[in-house]
Design a protein around this nucleic acid. Structure first.
Lengths: 262, 262
DNA sequence: CAATTTTCATTTGTCTTACATTTTAATGTC
DNA sequence: GACATTAAAATGTAAGACAAATGAAAATTG
């Protein structure tokens, strides 16, 4: 593990990269303790604050965790699915909001991915997951539900569908995509009639999943995608018509969750 | 933007979270300059090194970039697809290598996702993307190609297929999954015969994509998945048989690319 | 006056030193 | 032997200083 003091890039970035590479290469294994900050500073011939900046970079990526005290230090972190998942949601959300990704593109991606795991879910879903879907459908039918709560329930519903595939890698990839779309979905105002239509489609999906009817799930997801896009377009059209008043709509909803400390 | 000095979590983590939330909420917009480190230190009532640690955390996530000099400072970064993509590859790679994700699970996820975008790719692929696929197939047929080079070419081939869908969000999601599997694929030793079989399947895919025959692409991907798993199983079986000699196989191949500075 | 050079203020990058806090382990006392 | 005390080690934080880069303003020069 070496760095180049004459390079133009930050020393802390170089050190972070060196350690990160060592972790990726397997030279540092999970739960292994890194040398103390003082030792690292000595090894790389830099000051302790510089080493600390490097360690904070790694901590931000959940690659290490630190512990105070006598036997404390920095340890290689076992990257858990939840951590990676939270990170992906943040990244995807920012990506979508900063890069003018159109609703159609995001929607297409989301449903393409979801349809990918639907057959597996139809085959493997557990009773629990089915129950979750049913419960969310019930909630979505409640009057007086705010748009945000409706969207959140929608996410939970689809999450259950995705988790039904019983493949953690798929869940990790897809949950990020679904959740990242929530801010975009929050722009839509759901009328009573549109909610009714969505609930009906959700019910069809749940029924098909219960019957392990993969083609039916797929067909219904296609319908749901078409309907979602239709809704979004009508909302956009409405906004266009009203654009005389300079009301800016804030797309971002709620991005909760701690990310680093986890 | 406030922090709690009495909290048990690091001040730098709290500050990072506060700024990150402000970015996600849209209070800080792209290319906007943050206050100088000294000003931030004053605002949060902490020292400058503490502020710097927070900023490094954000830099590690590509949320900000810093510039030295008179008009320098920390600026909100426009998160680009390439940055997000690189981050996802690192995260996914570590996730797979640290969590004992079985080859089957990873393989299933990868092909499920890939099949999701295959129909779109069959419809929209450009001549360029088709040419890339053909070129990689040709390369894969060359004798004397190392296993690693063969795998890299395989990644490029599938990447072209995915990009053919013409949906950046899909590319971003899928490329991560495909590339993260490379270390696992590198464990496989490809015989001349198995390479021949893979090249044949790749050719079928390219042909079907050229003919815009989505069902054929899908069917061939299913065949390819089955063959890949078969290969992996035979390798595992071979390793099991030989496990008397304590040779540990290092799974990790090459994880190049800088990630933070970009 | 215009172009060029110089100076200078601002800001990040780094180092040094010091102290606070947390945690474990050893030590000593009863 | 059990329990309280102490010491040591490590991270967390603070403060101040200097180096380096960079752009803008000021001074100089043609």
């Amino acid at each position: 593990m070496k760095i180049d003091p004459d390079s133009t890039v930050d020393l802390s970035a170089q050190i972070a990269k060196a350690i990160r590479d060592a972790i990726i290469a397997g030279d540092l294994i999970v739960d292994q303790r890194l040398p103390s900050e003082a030792e690292l500073a000595d090894h790389f011939d830099v000051s302790r604050p510089t080493v600390r900046e490097a360690l904070k970079r790694l901590a931000a990526q959940s690659l290490i965790r630190t512990q105070r005290g006598a036997t404390g230090g920095a340890f290689v972190n076992r990257l858990r699915f939840e951590d990676a998942y939270a990170q992906q949601v943040t990244t995807s959300t920012l990506l979508l909001s900063m890069n003018a990704v159109s609703f159609d593109v995001a929607c297409e991606a989301r449903y393409a991915l979801e349809r990918a795991c639907a057959p597996l879910s139809a085959e493997r879903r557990t009773p629990d997951q089915l129950a979750t879907m049913r419960a969310e459908i019930h909630r979505q039918g409640q009057p007086g539900l705010t748009d945000e709560a409706f969207c959140a329930s929608d996410v939970t519903f689809h999450r259950a569908l995705v988790d039904g595939a019983g493949n953690k890698v798929l869940s990790y990839q897809l949950a990020g995509a679904v959740e990242a779309m929530q801010p975009l979905m929050n722009m839509i105002t759901f009328t009573a009639r549109s909610r009714e239509a969505i609930v009906a489609l959700h019910t069809d999906i749940a029924d098909a999943v219960e019957a392990r009817d993969a083609p039916k799930v797929d067909a219904t997801l296609i319908k749901l995608e078409a309907y979602t896009r239709e809704l979004a377009h009508s909302v956009v059209a409405l906004k266009e018509a009203r654009k005389s008043d300079g009301a800016t709509t804030r797309a971002h909803g709620a991005a909760k969750e701690e990310q680093e400390t986890a």
